Amino acid sequence: MAATKNVVKESPNAVHQNAILCETIMKEQRHQKLYTNYSINPYTKIHVLTGKPNSIHDTEEGEEDSHFLEVIHRANQEPVKKFDYPQTESQEIGWITKPLLESDRTDRRLNFYRHNSAITKYMDAAWRDKEQRENMN
């Protein structure tokens, strides 16, 4: 019989647990980024309440924040006007809406119009006649 080894894994002691915790914290701090520039989320709805009709304070004209208006207008634009290139792969479909070739309706190589022969003209007239007879009954 083959000898089997009974390997018992020991739980880490306090020193090892502290080393694991320090390494985890160092990895987290390496990838963290501190943001100090805060702004309003332009995608949230802002409910404007009207003031009291007899109040002097509410009748004064307030100043418009031009940066805030610019952010709101930019958020309401189409993605093509906001960005120079698509931000996701699904935006790539339909991003360039300009046709590759200018359409020339007189060019018969690219435009195949329906041509009626004598048989098709006869059948069109027959179907129209049949529909008129059915509608009269």
Rank of each mutant, 00 (worst) to 15 (best):
M1D: 11
A3F: 04
A3I: 08
A3R: 07
T4M: 09
T4N: 07
K5Q: 10
N6G: 01
V7L: 14
K9L: 13
E10W: 00
P12E: 06
V15Q: 08
V15H: 02
H16V: 12
Q17N: 13
N18M: 08
N18V: 03
N18G: 02
A19M: 13
I20H: 03
L21N: 07
C22T: 10
E23Y: 02
E23S: 10
T24S: 09
T24E: 09
I25L: 14
K27R: 14
K27I: 03
E28V: 08
Q29M: 13
Q32N: 05
Q32V: 03
Q32C: 10
K33I: 10
K33V: 10
L34K: 14
L34E: 09
L34Y: 12
Y35Q: 09
T36H: 01
T36N: 05
T36M: 03
N41A: 04
P42G: 02
P42M: 02
P42R: 02
K45V: 13
I46M: 09
I46V: 15
I46H: 05
H47E: 12
V48C: 03
L49I: 06
T50F: 04
G51M: 03
K52T: 06
S55H: 03
S55C: 14
H57Y: 09
D58C: 04
T59R: 12
E60Q: 09
E63T: 07
E63D: 10
E64C: 04
E64G: 00
E64M: 07
D65C: 15
D65Y: 00
L69W: 06
E70I: 01
V71F: 00
Q77Y: 00
Q77N: 03
E78S: 15
P79E: 08
P79I: 11
V80H: 15
V80M: 06
F83M: 03
T88S: 15
Q91M: 15
Q91R: 04
E92C: 12
G94I: 06
W95E: 03
W95I: 02
W95D: 03
T97F: 00
K98R: 11
L101D: 08
D104P: 02
D104I: 06
D104W: 02
D107A: 08
D107S: 07
R108Q: 11
R108I: 08
R109W: 01
L110A: 09
N111F: 07
F112Y: 08
F112Q: 11
Y113W: 10
N116F: 14
S117R: 01
A118C: 00
A118M: 04
I119E: 14
I119H: 11
I119S: 11
T120N: 04
K121T: 08
K121G: 08
Y122L: 14
Y122A: 14
Y122Q: 15
M123D: 05
M123K: 10
D124S: 07
A125E: 15
A125M: 06
A126D: 03
A126W: 04
A126C: 07
A126G: 00
W127S: 05
R128V: 01
K130H: 13
K130I: 07
K130M: 09
Q132S: 09
E134K: 10
E134C: 05
M136Y: 06
N137W: 07
N137V: 12
